[in-house]
């Protein structure tokens, strides 16, 4: 029969409309601007309107979310900072569109490379946010940021990020990617413990050998 199609279509729309009001009642005024209702509204259970009221509330990005990379530095106790990056160049090699430029300098006396980059550039007009640099960096020195609000009026200068612009403290990283951070720290601690254990074992072996030797000499 003609007209049923239209009625059905309207029916769907009306159901969604009613759902929204039902939902409004369910949340009792807590529908917007609260994290827990956001999760429900945006999850599989969500019904009715599911608009995010950006910029007043923001859809939280998951931990794995990747945008532009940033560099990590550690805050030392004496107030100085140490770059994690050793300018090994792996990220520059793996970057698919080749948008990372790293300046490594060498010690003027010895000529050996200094394990800290003099400068580090990423052209964010080329970067494809692929995350390879973070994935393959052996020192966990470069990570993918969550900050996507980067719109600007000019790109000539602002869009080649240099080291000063890329540098962020490790604490920031721990705050945006807590699970990754934890996993990496545990892995590092284990690694250290293993190394220490190895050292100890080696020392013990040495001592044992020395004792043996001494014992042999005694005889």
């Amino acid at each position: 029969m003609y007209g049923t199609g239209i009625l059905k279509g309207m029916g769907v729309t009306i159901r969604h409309l009613v759902d929204s009001f039902v939902d409004d009642m369910r949340f009792l005024g807590q529908r917007y601007y609260s994290d827990s209702s956001m999760n429900i509204r945006q999850g599989t259970e969500g019904r009715g309107v599911f608009t995010v009221q950006y910029p007043d509330e923001k859809l939280p990005v998951p931990e794995q979310f990747r945008f532009i990379p940033f560099l990590l530095y550690e805050n030392n106790e004496d107030g100085s900072t140490t770059d994690r990056c050793t300018s090994c160049g792996i990220c520059a090699k793996v970057c698919p569109p080749q948008c990372i430029w790293i300046e490594r300098s060498s010690d003027p006396d010895t000529g050996r490379p200094i394990p800290e980059p003099t400068n580090f550039y990423i052209d964010i007009d080329i970067c494809m946010n692929c995350g390879y640099c973070a994935e393959y960096c052996p020192f966990d020195a470069i990570k993918m940021d969550h900050d996507y609000e980067l719109a600007s009026y000019d790109r000539t200068e602002a869009h080649i990020f240099d080291k000063a612009r890329l540098d962020k403290p490790v604490e920031y990283y721990a705050s945006i990617r807590p699970n990754d951070y934890l996993a990496e720290e545990t892995a590092r601690a284990e690694e250290l413990a293993k190394k220490a254990a190895k050292k100890e074992a080696a020392a013990a072996r040495k001592a044992a050998a020395a004792a043996k030797k001494a014992a042999a000499e005694d005889n």
């Binding site: 300018s87 160049g89 520059a92 090699k93 698919p96 080749q98 990372i100 430029w101 300046e103 550039y121």
Partner: peptide, 19 residues
Amino acid sequence: YEEDIKPFDSRWPGGGVKR
């Protein structure tokens, strides 16, 4: 065109960022 294959040599350790 820069080089036949990636990675390009100019990216590291020389730096020298340019468009």
